[in-house]
C-alpha cells in the first residue's frame, strides 16, 4: 500500500499533482510494486462552487483546518479505506485557507486491481473526508462570512 496526504495553503493544480503521483509508477516497475497490480484507477477533483449555499455569487471559500490532526486523521481514514477495499495506492491532496471559485479544493486518487474497488474506494474515501476529517468551510459573499454546518448532498 502506498499513501500520500498533502495540504496546500496556496492554489494547487490537481492535474500536476496527479502527474507527479503517476511518475511513481515509472520509477518502480518491479512486479512486486504496489503500482504493478493497480490496473484500475479512480480519480475525483472537487472545486470551489461559484454560488453559495444560499444561491448568492460566492466571492471566496475559506477552509479552516486543525494542523496536525487534519493530516493524521486523513491518514487514518485513508488507511482504513485502503485496507477495507484492498487498494494498492491512495493520494489525497486538500486545499486550506482562502480559495476562489473554480479553484481545486480536493483531489482523491486511488488504484486497485479492478474498477469496482477503485471506484467504491474513491467514493468512500471522499465521503470519509467530508464527514470525518476536521475541515470547516466559510462562504464569503462580499464582506459577509458564513460558516457552513454540514455538507452538500451526495
Amino acid at each position: 500500500m502506498v499513501l500520500r496526504v498533502a495540504l496546500h495553503l496556496e492554489p494547487f493544480d490537481p492535474l500536476v499533482a496527479l502527474a507527479a503521483w503517476q511518475r511513481h509508477r515509472e520509477q518502480d516497475v518491479s512486479p512486486q510494486a504496489p503500482w504493478a497490480r493497480a490496473a484500475a484507477e479512480a480519480h475525483f477533483i472537487g472545486r470551489v462552487r461559484s454560488l453559495s449555499a444560499n444561491g448568492e455569487p460566492l466571492a471566496a471559500l475559506e477552509l479552516e483546518h486543525y494542523p496536525g490532526m487534519t493530516e493524521a486523521q486523513i491518514e487514518r481514514l485513508a488507511a482504513a479505506v485502503l485496507a477495507r477495499h484492498g487498494l494498492a495506492h491512495a493520494l489525497v491532496e486538500h486545499r486550506v485557507g482562502r480559495a476562489l471559485p473554480g479553484e481545486a479544493l480536493v483531489l482523491v486518487a486511488v488504484g486497485a486491481d479492478r474498477r469496482g474497488p477503485a471506484q467504491r474506494g474513491c467514493q468512500e474515501l471522499l465521503e470519509a473526508l467530508k464527514h470525518d476529517a476536521p475541515f470547516w468551510k466559510r462562504e464569503w459573499c462580499g464582506a459577509d462570512g458564513r460558516w457552513l454546518e454540514g455538507n452538500t448532498p451526495l
Binding site: Y66, V106, K130, F135, W136, L148, E149, N151
Partner: peptide, 8 residues
Amino acid sequence: FLPPISGG
C-alpha cells in the same frame, strides 16, 4: 472542541 465538519 470541533463544530460540525464540512470538508472535501
